[in-house]
Nucleic acid binder design. Structure first.
Lengths: 339, 339
DNA sequence: TTTTAGCACTCTAACCGTTAGAGTGCTAAA
DNA sequence: TTTAGCACTCTAACGGTTAGAGTGCTAAAA
């Protein structure tokens, strides 16, 4: 579809614009990227590329800047090359994650902070999807009069606690029995499985003679309704400092603060195939994020994918550097939680 | 120190500037604030106020803007008046907090979000200071080979969990015994008390015959070292949208992202007297926050102050609206956790 | 047929002088 | 003590000009 020469010119323009957000002129391309062609020829090529929708002109006599389609082409053609990971980043990440032996939350936080500092973009991580989280243990505690604390422990290293309103008085002994029952029944199941199992049990409930079990189910149902996924975010200020958003900062800040939007998007994305995914500008289904690009990857335990890490930056993101970084981060997280 | 008339002029300038960040001229003051004085007289007064350091001029022939000293005077003179709380805010806050029966974290998050949305500034909350948090219960769980999960439950409704590396194998039975021991020993003590008690016990350790207890102490010591206080933050985007920081946004974003700075500051502040505290611009000891003002108040359980809520905004903050809002928020939180 | 040189054209950003308007300080009168 | 009047100053906005960068087109060269 695109001749080799056209491809090279397009990539040159994209790279130059990523490096510095000024429209790229034909003369500049010949000089900086040493084609054996004159500016005039480059102009012809660029005019062709513009016609095909890969480049655009801010105004009649300015250089060209890449369109989202241009970035897309660039990113796709990147995949053919061997990705080179920044050795410094690789080392730092390794040393940071190696020492962590606590829960997955701390692990992800450390990873996102490192990635944010080195990539200079905003970094997010989704801890765990409930549909793949399996219960290790659940324990209930009596807390004051009519409140119960449920502590959930998953096999992936997630600890969740929730305070429940139990308007029927239960002694700690009762709670222990309930906990034991829940553990024997549901240990090893995914949270989603437990939820649906509970709904089934609820209908059978009347047939049950043990009143404790029916109480157990009521409690458990509430306990499992924690906000399914939190979003860990680092490097907000990196994004804000970029010249790309000088005007629109407030909208972007709002979109990111409202983590809901991003979570919904990630949900859609992570459903698709494996490996690193890149969403560029207008490809983004959410209106608020159409000026941003996302690079994300999922991390796994064994071969079950649990959650995702990724980077949000301007469409003018340095994809060639960022993509391998995100990939490495996801792999490193996978390695730690699988050991 | 200041005549009644001068006081009124100063307050008029401050109010006008808070309302709209344009230098305030003498003519404008006479018109808008209906003194029975000519602009010329106001000019004289304003010149006096400038000499005294309450106002300043951006350039020779512009109006005046308040200095930090000017804001300080304004805030101090506000205290004499009856604070009027926005009825709408009062209602919304009440309805939001009333329905919450879960832990203190959720409570504070809801409160900060409401306050951020209504005040249009950034809102923070410090959940609990360890020196005033008392232990309700601690429970240890075996998790995989050599890891233990410690769940801490305080009397204030805080639930904390931490994964510990226990390189000596312990059965769940052992862990239960340890938990029982810790509960019987330390239930009701503040976290700080427990910490110092542990250090004492450590020295006696050799004399102890029960090896489990020494293990318990080792575990407990680690479990209690959670990051002493988290910071809950809402309304980042509100602050970013203000015209006051058009250039310096990145620095401010960084200062706030690095929650450590703010926590340190709040620690200093909350040590001082009761009631609402206001720190204006350059009064701020931290370099990064010298362009910002802080309004904060502590919330209490009974008469023990537990943590704080507050607002961070530009020095040009609407103090007369914000101060009573913060006060009400703190009081509402106190009411909920004390019931 | 493809590439290149040359030229006319266009658009922007920067510069400059001018001006209108807002605001001040000072002085003399009320 | 207050006010009116006046001269002065500073800024922001406007408009015209210019330099420079970059394009598109055409005709010649490869």
């Amino acid at each position: 579809m695109l001749s080799e020469r056209n491809r090279k010119v397009l990539c040159a323009v994209v790279q130059s614009y990523i490096n510095k957000p000024d429209p790229v002129g034909s003369r500049f391309v010949t000089k900086k990227y040493a084609f054996n062609l004159s500016p005039a020829t480059i102009r012809n090529i660029m005019a062709d590329l513009e016609e095909m929708g890969f480049l655009s002109q801010p105004h009649t006599s300015a250089g060209r800047i890449p369109t989202d389609k241009g970035y897309r082409f660039y990113v796709d053609s990147l995949c053919r090359e061997k990705p080179t990971v920044d050795a410094k980043f690789s080392n730092i990440l390794k040393s940071k994650l190696e020492s962590i032996k606590s829960d997955i939350y701390t692990l992800l936080k450390e990873a996102t902070e490192t990635l944010a500092a080195m990539s200079h973009y905003l970094v997010f991580a989704v801890p765990l999807k409930t549909d793949s989280t399996t219960l290790n243990r659940i324990q209930l505690f009596r807390y004051r009069n009519k409140q119960t604390v449920a502590v959930l422990l998953t096999n992936e290293g997630l600890v969740r606690s929730k305070m429940l309103d139990t308007n029927f008085g239960l002694s700690q002994k009762d709670l222990n029995r309930i906990s034991d029952y829940l553990n024997s029944e549901f240990s090893g199941c995914t949270i989603d499985e437990i939820r649906s199992a509970l709904i089934k049990q609820m209908s059978k409930e009347k047939a049950l003679c043990d009143i404790l079990i029916s109480k157990a189910i009521a409690i458990c149902k509430e306990a499992l309704f924690f906000p399914s996924t939190d979003l860990i975010v680092s490097g907000f200020s990196e994004l804000i400092g970029l010249p790309d958003f000088s005007g629109r900062i407030k909208e972007i800040a709002k979109a990111i603060e409202d983590k809901h939007t991003i979570l919904k998007l990630l949900d859609r994305l992570s459903a698709s195939t494996d490996g690193v995914k890149v969403v560029i500008g207008s490809e983004n289904p959410m209106e608020e994020l159409k000026k941003l690009s996302i690079v994300m990857a999922t991390y796994k335990q064994g071969d079950r994918s649990l959650g995702s890490v990724g980077v949000i930056g301007p469409t003018r993101m340095d994809y060639s550097k960022t993509i391998p970084m995100v990939e490495l981060t996801a792999k490193s997280i996978s390695a730690v939680i699988s050991r």
